[in-house]
Design a protein around this nucleic acid. Sequence first.
RNA 1: GGAGGGAUGGCCGAGUGGACGAAGGCGUCUGUCUUGAAAACAGAUGUGGGUUAAAGCUCACCGUGGGUUCGAAUCCCACUCCCUCCGCCA
Length: 424
Amino acid sequence: MLDINLIRENPEIARAGMEKRGMDPSPVDEAARLDARWREVLQEADALKEERNRVSKEIGKMKDKAEREAKIAAMREVSDKVKSLDEELKQLEEDLNAVMAIIPNIPSDKVPDGFTEEDNIEVRRWGEHPDPSKTYQPHWDLGPELGILDFERGVRLAGSRFYVLTGLGARLQRALIAFMLDLHQKQGYTEMYGPFVVRGEILYGAGQLPKFKDNLYKDHEEDLYFLPTSEVSLTGMHMGEILEEEQLPIKYTAYSPCFRREKMSAGRDVRGIKRGHQFDKVEMYKYCLPEESDAELDKMIADAEETCKLLGIPYRVILKCAGDTSETARISYDLEAWAAGCQEWLEISSISNVGDFQARRAMIRYRPTQGGSPRPLHTLNGSGLGLPRALIAILENNQQPDGSVVIPEVLRPWMGGVEVIKKE
RNA sequence: GGAGGGAUGGCCGAGUGGACGAAGGCGUCUGUCUUGAAAACAGAUGUGGGUUAAAGCUCACCGUGGGUUCGAAUCCCACUCCCUCCGCCA
């Protein structure tokens, strides 16, 4: 949610932001129009309420019966007018909120122009690629051969885009989760574990609703949705709160499964475990002062990179172009892991500075130490990392000529002495 | 699932139709006093919106949403959450 004052005073900035993303900027004008009308009606209603409040107090003290009755009759009329104006206001507010909810965040100046992946910029690379002269099996062949991945049973249980990790496959994923959570704690994040379902208002605050309604799983009778990412619950954690400046920055890490209907990517990435309806993720999240969010973003990118480095996953850092940046973000960097089997770069982490966009929407503010009224703070989120794609990178890149897979050193404490996953 | 009790400001807590944005206490801040601190005393101390150059004026907010009324923290309805007891259950 943008600041309504921006729409009032500098609508051209919001318009330019939408245009940079390749969107039609007319919602900005619509918002400005609704807001102007809203203020007009509000002033009218407030004036009548002032009169009603004032006269009603007088009525309470009146002795003269006739005069009293006359005033009551007059105020009855005023009240009727107030009622109809309030209804109009409510409608205007709903309309305005609906429009404001679809206006995206303004991309930072650092975000390159462009609308597709082609326009993203590679910032840097790290790591040795597996020998390109050799062939590596994609994980959808390798996994079942090693007996650690079962697609048929996933489909039996829940349909397409579901799979089962079996034996050492499940254990490897658990090792990754434990490793990442421990690492993020060392990096200064507090581990959180919360509900995997949340109320609609929490999703709204995080900017998932109304836009991604069709991508969410929902309980059939309660107002509860399955998390599409724990970013949602980490945003909701302090919804409506006023934090003290001294508390900032707050840094959280959380593991959760993520549930996505993937309606918008029907038919894409259907092979393997790259894009399931359910996947696990370890998330990093920060609440910080506005003036510190750029520096905190750089640190978070470094934290995600460290995760890849320790796992020995070769990656590149991508700065996303305006059209490819998520609507809640001012700027997003992706870490893409090289997967030697399917021969592609896989988005393994996406790290964003959201600015005050979610904070404004979720009403998360801080009180400056200097005093003064509460201000919206900044939030950042990043995956650290997505589990299926980390698994893919490890399985495919660490393949040996005999088809076995070497387990990264850092994961072995959780693998019960297993160093290599071999065919039985 | 059944029965009952409750939700008020940073916290505790009073308030059952008009002088209540809300007593009192705690906390916090400022001042007086003091070498300094404590104590005591005095004052201040919510959030959001509109308007305004500013001061100010004004509207809304007592869990949420509706309703009754000239007027609602207070009365009515629905919902949410919390607590206690009973039942059931991982």
